[in-house]
Design a binder for these strands. Sequence first.
DNA 1: GTCTATATACGGATAGAC
DNA 2: GTCTATCCGTATATAGAC
Lengths: 226, 226
Amino acid sequence: MTYAEFKQKITETKQTICREVYRENQENIRIKKEKTAIKNFEIIFDAVFKISYTKGFQAMSMRDLSRETGLSMGALYGYFKSKDELLEIIQRQGRSMVKGVLVDCIKTVDNPMEKLSTVIKTHIYLSEMVRPWFFFTFMEARNLCEEELKAAQAMESYTEQILVDILELGETKGVFKPKNHRLTASLIKAMQQDWYLKRWKYKKRNITVDEYADYVISCVTSFCLA
Amino acid sequence: MTYAEFKQKITETKQTICREVYRENQENIRIKKEKTAIKNFEIIFDAVFKISYTKGFQAMSMRDLSRETGLSMGALYGYFKSKDELLEIIQRQGRSMVKGVLVDCIKTVDNPMEKLSTVIKTHIYLSEMVRPWFFFTFMEARNLCEEELKAAQAMESYTEQILVDILELGETKGVFKPKNHRLTASLIKAMQQDWYLKRWKYKKRNITVDEYADYVISCVTSFCLA
DNA sequence: GTCTATATACGGATAGAC
DNA sequence: GTCTATCCGTATATAGAC
């Protein structure tokens, strides 16, 4: 699988994501026309990511957001109850998106080695497809309230566990060497994250997402087999 | 080398760091007694790290900092000209500290393999010793002005280059297999960073810094030799 | 649904007493 | 060197017109 093929296969688009956001939070949203809401959520999210990328979410004022979206302050508050709620909406949707895609991608694969490459690759490709979303989710997790922070940490453990399960399965089948699989999983996650955290670095060096994913996989597999 | 041995060897302490900060920025500091200044800088930095760890630097108000340090607002502004300058001081000092320690640690080692383990280990141990400083430097880099941001990125490239040089040396000597050394270096950096970015995770699982460093090294070497 | 105008609170920074 | 008191700009959020 290449990144181009991944994009074809995946059904998640900005629009479907925004539709989900709208339906999940309908009780707090003043806007009644779904079409309007979806269109504006897309604009709002893009603006949040753009502004927060350099300043951070805290430093982004509602006036900044108003200017960037072209919506007035009053209008914006029709889409969420407070600035904090906006943050939570984005974080929650991010988690549900990752969970859905990752669980889906390994269902049809049995071979542990192939399973491992698939899940690593899928995660990196997804992070490329919605990179601003991933970057934002990581960097702004600290601004969450305790409850939501716990949920974010649980998500980290959850995706790590997916990797651990595959590594253990591989060991059972005699494909992978016995190791501290949980620690291996942590290293894999660290490498996956670097792709969206250090965008500027890889862009400057013209590393493609396919190159990067393949390199991570070659590193991981050579370790698991050694 | 273990973490305990590293701590013995290293001459950098909070105090020496604060002394450097004082001397570097003396022209902007109203406080004339070095001893007072060093003592209070230590208090101030600790407070900044503590508050920023959860809220972020932007969200930390000078009133928060005043409360946590026990110094009044007026007193605080004797130690730096503005909140932004405080951020820059911390970032600059962090860079000079890392540079000093890393350059120093490989001077006496010739063997490429040993050189590689040493530099990986030293970086992780240093990040453990002044973890709040590392975490802060990474998370708050975005709040820097363009010039300082460039310096921070240059620092990332610099430490990466140290790794690349070692890997190339190793290839020349026939120890390491030919690879994309720069990409390998990036992966190493990603793994190093995870130790201070995800403190909560490793703490919860009782992973020691020695365990972590050794595991990273075993992963990297098995890849470089494969 | 979206706008403008505004209420109210809090931010960084400084002046001047001690 | 440190404190208290205060200036003044900007923050989030809402009320009410269109």
